[in-house]
Simulated assay, not measured.
Amino acid sequence: MKAHVYVTLKTSVLDPQGQTIHNALRKIGFSDISAVRQGKYFALSLADDLDPQAARTQVERIAREVLTNPVIEEFTYRIEE
């Protein structure tokens, strides 16, 4: 079982790296892109015999307590069985 965790800055937080990427894209001709937000991606390998509900609980706790700074970041995740 694998969990994919995506961490991004909250929309209320300025994203200078995303803005720099957006500006670079416009300069090289990608004018249809209206905004860029950057983030982090984590792939977690979970025990195959872990109950799906326990997996969700564990991944949410790891994401909330370890992988994100809750003041400025938020997360989403998906689990593959």
Rank of each mutant, 00 (worst) to 15 (best):
G18I: 01
S45L: 08
A24S: 14
D48V: 06
K2D: 13
R61V: 08
L46T: 03
A24Y: 05
A47Y: 05
E81V: 15
V13Y: 08
E73L: 11
F75H: 15
K10N: 14
Y41I: 06
G29M: 04
M1Q: 09
I21N: 01
R26D: 05
S45G: 07
Y6D: 12
S12H: 08
A55G: 04
I33S: 01
L67I: 09
L25M: 12
G29C: 05
T20N: 13
E73T: 10
R56K: 12
N69C: 10
K40W: 02
P52T: 11
L50W: 02
K2N: 14
V7K: 03
I72Y: 10
E65K: 13
N23R: 12
P52G: 10
G18L: 02
P16Q: 10
Q17F: 07
R64A: 14
I62V: 15
I79Y: 06
P70M: 11
I62S: 06
E73D: 12
E74A: 14
Y41W: 13
L50G: 01
V71R: 08
L50M: 12
Q58P: 08
T76L: 14
A35V: 05
K10A: 13
E73C: 11
I79D: 07
I79A: 10
S34W: 01
S31R: 06
N23W: 07
D15S: 06
E65Y: 07
A55R: 00
V5H: 00
E81S: 15
N69Q: 11
G39C: 05
R61I: 09
V7I: 15
V59R: 00
E80Y: 09
T20P: 02
D49P: 04
A35G: 07
E74T: 15
V59S: 02
V7A: 04
V5F: 04
G39A: 04
V36F: 01
K2W: 09
T68S: 13
V13S: 12
K2Q: 15
V13T: 13
E81K: 15
E60Q: 15
I33Y: 02
L25G: 00
E65P: 02
K27F: 00
A54V: 04
I33N: 01
L44S: 03
L44V: 12
I33H: 02
V7L: 08
K40S: 01
Y77H: 14
R37C: 00
L25T: 00
P70D: 09
A47F: 06
A43I: 07
S45K: 13
G39M: 04
S45A: 12
V13N: 11
V7E: 01
N23T: 12
N69W: 07
Q19L: 09
R64D: 11
Q17P: 03
A35H: 09
A55F: 03
F42C: 10
K40M: 02
F75K: 15
A55M: 04
G29K: 03
L25E: 00
V5R: 00
Y41C: 05
K40I: 00
I79R: 05
P70T: 10
E65R: 11
P52S: 13
